[in-house]
Design a protein around this nucleic acid. Sequence first.
RNA 1: CGGGGCAUAGCGCAGUCCGGUUAGCGCGCCUGCUUUGGGAGCAGGAAGUCGCAGGUUCAAAUCCUGCUGCCCCGACCA
Length: 422
Amino acid sequence: MSIKVTKRSEDYSRWYTDVVQKAELADYGPAKGTMVIRPYGYAIWENIRNIADRKFKETGHVNAYFPLLIPESFMKKEAEHIEGFAPECAVVTHGGGKKLDEPLYIRPTSETIIWSMYKKWINSYRDLPLLINQWVNVVRWEMRTRLFLRTTEFLWQEGHTAHSSYEEAEEEARKMIEIYRQIAEDYMAMPVYVGKKTDAEKFAGAVYTYTIEAMMGDKKALQSGTSHNLGQNFAKAFNVTFLSKENKQEYVYATSWGVSTRLVGGVIMAHGDDKGLILPPKIAPYQLVIIPIWRTAEQKILLLEEVAKITHQFNKEDVRYIIDDNEQTSPGWKFNQWEMKGVPLRMEIGPKDLRITGSCWCGATPVKNNLSQQRICSPLLPDCWKRSRIVCFSALLNSETGIPMKLIIMLISKRSSKAVAL
RNA sequence: CGGGGCAUAGCGCAGUCCGGUUAGCGCGCCUGCUUUGGGAGCAGGAAGUCGCAGGUUCAAAUCCUGCUGCCCCGACCA
């Protein structure tokens, strides 16, 4: 494997696939268009997922699971829906060695199977609203695939809600696109435009489709999350009605909304540079990499003792860190490797001094700078690592502001006016 | 589905035009010693159904036919 990635200015697409593979985020699966999400890439997805899941639950949603296989007749109940999805569906025709009486669709999305169940569960306005989400895989047979951005199978969440009025459904659809905006901007440092899709572009079966669109490094927009007001389309298709307070039968109003592993592709393109990934601290698998540098065995022991004192504090503060004390690779190799993987901050701790380097994040704006090396103190003197500084350091990594480095430099290295100006 | 490219060691490639020893090179991997603050050095070593199937030939990675897979660029999608 070559050491460097293709420069963005040379070939943006190749740069992207290089970074995905060399940062060990994902690899190609054996079947066409499939992707293996490797542990480092999956950790980013898990962080995004945990943030989203918490926000869904804070807004009253609950998780459930609906089946992967959907009878063909279900798919065909909503005319626009099947028209929109049929060409990109994978269909199971055989099972148990026999041809099936009715083909089973592998879910491209779950509106149909979920609404068939909602029909059983909704009888009166007292059953509403019904606010269910699921974290699952879906399959869409795409012509052209790219890791994370468009793969045959991908991971996502799909929320499916049922309401007693059009206004309430509309409010839900807008509420969820706002949550997606917050996840993109406040956690992934990825600015987005919130907008409504044209009739041609909207989801098949929706009344309105709202999306967040993120701007990538090649100046192309990436649709990064969608929220649909489905009106009564699926309720009518599956005959889901409820008895209102006024004792009248009415069709239920619905929404659905989702974000997928495409978000991981978005964050790569939004921030990465010619040295590899650059990850926002809030979703980075490791927010900090600690690289001890030693010459002798005694130095190594001493250094690791110091590192343990520091990490003891990080454990309390929930800082995600990794100590790279691998003896098989050189410090230089480690620097480049972790830069490829986009770890926000690096702490070099050696016989001479301790340095912190990394990227600067200013809120949702993806302003980033490789900071000049900041010397702090000599780590071989046990008292030099001021406890208060560690507290600041770890608290900043966890702050809601998303601007760890700026403040770290101000607090820790006051003499560097250039860094403060960042 | 159209256009282009590729398939040889784990990865990246050369060799193919013009058939001919034991199929090479770089990185990685294994062993040993020296190293370690920006991708370390030396020495030794392991590793290949040359994408698959036919054909031509004394002889095929190389020529012919068919097939398969993948990547990139376009139209569609989260």
